[in-house]
């Protein structure tokens, strides 16, 4: 095993180009477990800790450009306003120690369906900025996950940042685990209201081979909200609409039975989380709308 220690992003890209099998390591929270337990012996480890700008973020007009190694702790503490869904998801990642080391780049690189960031990224809308010596490109989050623990990266590419849409409405994230802290998702659900486009986006974790959106459910809800004038009148979403949305979210799952939970439980739980997160976000939206009206 060789340990490559690039001092800059350019050096990192060059190293990855030279050694496409090199495994990038930043927070180490996935890679080191595999090494400690002898599950993996990469030829090269590519340390990204010395590439300083990976831990930085920029808040732009419409998006946040989040460096791949910005620790979850920073996201949950410093980006709650801009990225409320991802901040909530970050708060559910493992333990404080892990949140101090791990970042979204690791979740994306590993592309495990259980990664906590995925549902929030899917719901918010995001693009993954990847780069190689050949150049840089933005991969839409919907096209990023290509299979179980597989993603759209080429062998010589590294994840540099994620461009996440700043919240224009309430966002929520829920995750089921069989412990009240430090637990891997049995399944997870993210939901974001986008009042500007009058759309709702979702993300489901750990209930399909890849993180997925519940697109049929989104379409149904978008139509129902539009039809009922809900975005304008701020009415309570009728229970039958919420229930159908929840059922469609559950139907979007394609889960398996494993030691963490059964497929049928996962479907059931995604439905419950879909209904609850919709209720929470919508209540919040109504509250904000009422305040705005009152102020006007």
């Amino acid at each position: 095993m060789d340990f490559l220690r690039p001092a800059s992003w350019e050096e990192a890209l060059a190293a990855k180009a030279e050694h496409p099998t090199a495994v990038p390591i930043a927070g180490g929270t996935d890679v080191m477990v595999e090494i400690n337990f002898d599950h993996r012996r990469p030829e090269y480890l590519l340390d990204l800790n010395r590439v300083g700008d990976l831990t930085e973020w920029e808040v732009g007009e419409d998006t946040v450009r989040l460096g791949a190694s910005v620790p979850y702790t920073r996201i949950m503490e410093d980006l709650r306003g801009e990225l409320p869904g991802l901040a909530l998801a970050s708060h559910t990642v493992a333990s404080p120690q892990i949140r101090n080391r791990g970042g979204v780049g690791g979740n994306l690189g590993t592309a495990s369906p259980a990664g906590d960031a995925h549902p929030a990224l899917l719901a918010a809308g995001a693009e993954v900025e990847v780069e190689s010596v050949r150049g840089s490109r933005l991969i839409p989050i919907d096209a990023f996950y290509t299979g179980v623990k597989r993603n759209a990266l080429a062998a010589d590419e590294l994840i540099r940042a994620v461009h996440i849409k700043k919240a224009d409405g309430p966002q929520q994230f829920s995750k089921v685990g069989t412990r009240n802290a430090m637990v891997i998702a049995v399944c997870a659900f993210g939901l974001a209201l986008h009042p500007e486009t009058r759309t709702v986006r979702t993300g489901i974790g750990s209930a399909a081979p890849t993180p997925v959106r519940a697109k049929t459910a989104e379409e149904f809800l978008n139509a129902a909200l539009e039809e009922g004038g809900f975005w304008d009148n701020g009415k309570i979403i009728t229970p039958s609409v919420a229930k159908q949305f929840a059922d469609l979210c559950a139907a979007a799952c394609n889960p398996i039975d494993d030691v963490r939970g059964t497929a049928s439980y996962r479907r059931h739980a995604v439905g419950i989380m879909a209904r609850r997160t919709l209720t929470w976000t919508w209540e919040s939206y109504r509250g904000t709308a009422a305040t705005t009206e009152g102020a006007a």
Partner: peptide, 16 residues
């Protein structure tokens, strides 16, 4: 949420 089932995973705010 730390006082609720699910804890930090934010699964309920009292529902159910």
């Amino acid at each position: 949420v730390r006082q609720l089932p699910g804890g930090l995973s934010n699964t309920t705010h009292g529902e159910g």
